[in-house]
Write a protein that binds this DNA or RNA. Structure first.
Lengths: 329, 329
DNA sequence: TTGTAAGCGTTATCAG
DNA sequence: CTGATAACGCTTACAA
């Protein structure tokens, strides 16, 4: 049996209450007593049992993170942001990969509730009424990152503005025929709004929208590659393409290069996300940067405030994006 | 106040013991009683409190993962492997980023112990006597991934063999002057052994070792880039380079391309890790693949066995590596 | 300044 | 088959 507060109390010849007091830095302990207790802790190698403590104080100082897949490009950096500020505020994180699977998601949510996490950060998917109801009933604090839902706290960027900025840049640079390899239109987070941004920019510049220049992708390398191949087969080819993930951008570049064209001379390419990879590719990627780390950090910071019942002026935080200009456009 | 087993018991007009029984699928419950309890659970929306349960049963079904940095290339995939089998065996994971900082590491270890994790997976660094002693004293199960220490359970690959295989391939292909951009010699996991593998292959093939062709890097893009620049300034340049991370390989390729040379025609490049990026670069990377996901999965599987006190024939698991042949060499 | 004791929400032993 | 109850390791009134 591991040693408990009792053993320490016995050795220090005090009550467990006193030990608890020095553990929790309660001031009302005589210095000499405190020293005895500290000694005993040292000697026994005692480590407090956080589970027992949690049961009593009704918080666990752990929060749950629900993401689709830590091994996909987007998430590690925001998780890092979360964990850094979690750590700063003495929280730990339980990581859950949902694979965008509603059933897994629901199961994980139950587990997190049962494990009494103090809060949840959700970036898994589009949020649903069902989830919202569950969370509400459980009385658990939640913040959404990179997705939004009714009046729940969330951290996002302005996807249509971001998208428009990217296309505007292409237009300013004088590109005439700008294509879009977008996300799924059914994706209300990164699909639709970025499509709208593209349309906005084009219309605003008085350019006609060419349906052939709009192709749907799924954010993955292959879909960028095949999407570009399709564009390259067109009679009238685009001279620039904006796409909504860096992976797709890299796929696009490969398709272009393989066809003997140059980037950006023959085909400019703008990606999205500014993932690690973006600065490493050749040519390096001009890309619309989401502040990934910051999104995580700010989200977690918001959650701590919520947990402390601090007054927060604004639950809906929209972070600034930035167009990172490199070689590909 | 959240509803507890008591509320359920009251509503079902049974004792808490009985509720506990149906919760834990204990057979000794009359079917009709069980139904009453299930009904009450349903009506109240009761969720068991895992913290209270853990306090009693002395396990938490959560394990701790210590890694340097989830946002660096290597780890997300192995964490995913860990989490998948953890989930399969009803464990959750607490993620800790240590930044290779001994102090942070030690602090996290304490926290994990206090939170009563059932086990730990460690990939943070080289393991130390100090850590080992602590873990032992705490009586906590641990498995190391991608590092090794005395008689502790570990999952690794054969780094010298892997490295030798890569260089052998270059030799077979007829490259004459093969350089190495390696890790730090002070790194006993990926630095020294991979250096040794290079030396082995070269000696074995009867090639003289050219000190100028060996440069030290730190696994990052920049160090590959600058390392290659240095190599390119040599009077007598190499015609191939083996490096010990994909990031460095990508940096190398940029340096080569910028200097107007072609990959692999003028300079063959082999990387290490087969990270996501490897198949996306142009030219795509020939690289020594570590089975990242599998390392995580196998490591976690081993941990479950350890936790179940199952007999394990072999605590030291060496996984197979594989040379993935693509365009860069 | 310190100790006593109740209680957090479970499980498990023991009786019945 | 079911119920009382002690116990898990801690915190926190309340008393002294």
């Amino acid at each position: 049996m591991a040693i408990s507060i009792k053993d320490v109390a016995k050795m220090a010849e005090v009550s467990v209450a006193t030990v608890s007091r020095v553990l929790n830095k309660n001031t009302n302990v005589k210095e000499e007593t405190e020293k005895r207790v500290l000694d005993a802790i040292e000697k026994t190698g005692y480590k407090p049992n956080a589970i027992a403590r949690s049961l009593k104080v009704k918080n666990t100082r752990t929060i749950g993170i629900m993401i689709p897949d830590i091994s996909s490009n987007f998430f590690p950096e925001v998780v890092r942001g979360i964990e850094d500020v979690a750590n700063e505020f003495n929280y730990n994180i339980i990581l859950c990969n949902t694979d965008l699977d509603r059933e897994k998601e629901s199961k994980y949510l139950d587990i997190l509730v049962e494990k009494q996490v103090d809060g949840i950060i959700y970036m898994s998917n589009t949020f649903t009424d069902q989830l919202a109801e569950k969370v509400k009933k459980m009385g658990i604090e939640i913040v959404l990152i990179s997705t939004d839902y009714k009046d729940l706290p969330s951290i996002t960027i302005d996807n249509v503005k971001a998208s428009k900025d990217a296309v505007d840049y292409l237009i300013e640079k004088g590109y005439e025929n700008i294509a879009l390899i977008g996300g799924q239109m059914t994706d209300p987070n990164a699909g639709l709004p970025r499509y709208n941004g593209y349309i906005n920019a084009m219309s605003h510049a008085g350019k006609t929208i060419n349906k052939d220049f709009i192709v749907e992708g799924n954010y993955k390398f292959e879909s960028g590659y095949t999407g570009m191949k399709k564009l390259l087969e067109l009679e009238k080819k685009p001279d620039a393409v904006f796409t909504v993930s860096d992976e797709m951008a890299v796929g696009i570049i490969r398709a272009v290069l393989e066809s003997g064209y140059k980037v950006p001379k023959d085909m400019a390419v703008i990606g999205f996300d500014n993932t690690n990879m973006a600065k490493m590719t050749y040519p390096s990627l001009t890309t619309l940067s989401q502040p990934l780390y910051e999104m995580g950090a700010v989200g977690m910071r918001l959650l701590t405030k919520l947990l402390n019942k601090e007054e927060v002026e604004n639950h809906k935080i929209v972070l600034e994006h930035e167009l990172i200009k490199r070689e590909s456009a």
